[in-house]
Write a protein that binds this DNA or RNA. Sequence first.
DNA 1: TACTGACCTTGAGTGCACTCTAAGCAAGCG
DNA 2: CGCTTGCTTAGAGTGCACTCAAGGTCAGTA
Lengths: 131, 131
Amino acid sequence: MSQAAVAGAEFEARYTIGEVAEQTGLSAHTLRWYERIGLLDHPARSHHGQRRFSDADLGWLAFLGNLRATGMPVAAMLRYTELVRTGDETRAERRQLLIEHREEVLARIRDLQTNLLVLDYKIDLYGQDCQ
Amino acid sequence: MSQAAVAGAEFEARYTIGEVAEQTGLSAHTLRWYERIGLLDHPARSHHGQRRFSDADLGWLAFLGNLRATGMPVAAMLRYTELVRTGDETRAERRQLLIEHREEVLARIRDLQTNLLVLDYKIDLYGQDCQ
DNA sequence: TACTGACCTTGAGTGCACTCTAAGCAAGCG
DNA sequence: CGCTTGCTTAGAGTGCACTCAAGGTCAGTA
């Protein structure tokens, strides 16, 4: 996840915040905010002080995107991020966190499907006759 | 949806706000708020001025619950409610609204499932070896 | 040289959906 | 009688996840 962890990282860091915003669908504002709250390592900077994101950063953002898309709160993503930063000894805990999150997502899907049945029924009623 | 639309409704209106909160899982605060913003008709009142909800109110709240559980924003629920209040001539529009919402929910479910695959993959990686 | 556009910072503002506060009234209980 | 519980109101506060504002730097183009 960290561009600093990759040898020669400064040669890979090439995307501007605008490009990353484009690719990830997050706004530049949000990318800076993610960095500020600790979801994202401080990226490399150009000699003018502008951020230059690496492929590793993009990969990490894509993974965060998966977590967000499945409804994980930012606070939980932050916790996960900090576990990653801590090191390999947290692997079991990270795995556990993901497993629990998966269970929640599965429950959410089941819940949506159940509620959808009622909607279908209602739509059916409208299609036929009154109320 | 309206207890006023049912003949003899005042004889059915029997649940206190606490009981309705209990049954619907919404807080009494939220029930009053729903009423204030127009999601709920003004319920009957006891001779002390306390709300007395009817079975019709409970049914309507259950339906609202379905909409909320499937992620419909309050503003859209409000629009639907106003269509119901307007009368039978809005039935086609209401049906259309529900159909569109159903499509969105189906898309959400597909999206969740897609993102879940990545989670599964990641969990699998943690289960095996490094990163 | 003037302008445009992308980037920088800190800190404040937004929208949603509640959620609570404060001050007060009424019923029921020991 | 005092206490608890549950209700009433209008309006303020909360938490989340952004989102924007203001004021600035810098590179490239006409």
